[in-house]
């Protein structure tokens, strides 16, 4: 299957973008309903990037931040974070990093690093360290003890993002694994998820034969 910027935007992939954006929104709503202390606002982006590639994923991330900025204008400045998450997950999926559980966790750590390295400078330079979200209180605690804005923003960002992003990638991984082979075969980056399923099936067959 041909891959790349010009080939990734198939009709099914384009139809996946609104679903991804809506999932980002709804998963953070569900989190609020369940009263969990995490954001989970990238799950849709991660699912879309895994099966439709880096460019469609980046578009989903950008679209999510644009639409969030209709009501919360600060998210507009953090669009580079979502775009980088989409791109990175897409490329990791291209190189088959989501075939095993431990490589998935490693990918989650990679996403965390990307989000921290890109998000923290934006937070410091544009907003002077504040974001207007609950993370600010954590930053404030660090600030009171270290008195250094870069250290405090980086530490609070690592603390919040590591749990958030790694769990998001894991949940997305389990969900994508449950998708039907028929659907995954239509997506440009779905084959690394199919391969594993077929192997599993072969093992089961052997056991049955015994």
């Amino acid at each position: 299957m041909k891959r790349g910027l010009m080939h990734d935007f198939t009709l099914l992939a384009i139809l996946l973008i609104p679903v991804g954006v809506a999932l980002n929104f709804v998963s953070s709503q569900v989190v609020q309903l369940l009263k969990l202390p995490i954001h989970f606002d990238v799950i849709g982006t991660v699912v879309v990037s895994m099966i439709a590639g880096p460019w469609v994923g980046a578009t989903t991330g950008l679209a999510t931040n644009l639409i969030t900025s209709l009501t919360n204008p600060t998210s507009l400045f953090f669009a580079p974070v979502s775009i980088s998450v989409g791109l990175l997950i897409g490329y990791l999926s291209k190189f088959g990093m989501f075939k095993r559980l431990w490589t998935t966790i490693v990918s989650g750590i990679a996403i965390t690093i990307a989000a921290v390295v890109i998000g923290s400078p934006i937070s410091v330079m544009v907003f002077g360290g504040a974001t207007g979200k609950s993370i600010d209180t954590v930053t404030g605690v660090f600030l009171a003890s270290t008195q250094d804005i870069w250290t405090s923003v980086f530490s609070s960002s690592i603390l919040i993002n590591s749990v958030d992003k790694i769990l998001s990638v894991l949940i997305a991984y389990f969900i994508v694994k449950k998708m039907s082979d028929r659907y995954l075969s239509k997506m440009n980056y779905g084959d690394s998820f199919i391969q594993e399923k077929r192997n599993k099936y072969a093992v089961n067959k052997k056991q049955i034969a015994k």
Binding site: V19, V26, F40, V47, I171
Partner: peptide, 16 residues
């Protein structure tokens, strides 16, 4: 969280 989100994603995907 997973039993809520899983069916949601899968049904939305089938919808597309």
């Amino acid at each position: 969280f997973v039993p809520v989100l899983g069916p949601l994603v899968l049904s939305s995907i089938a919808n597309t």
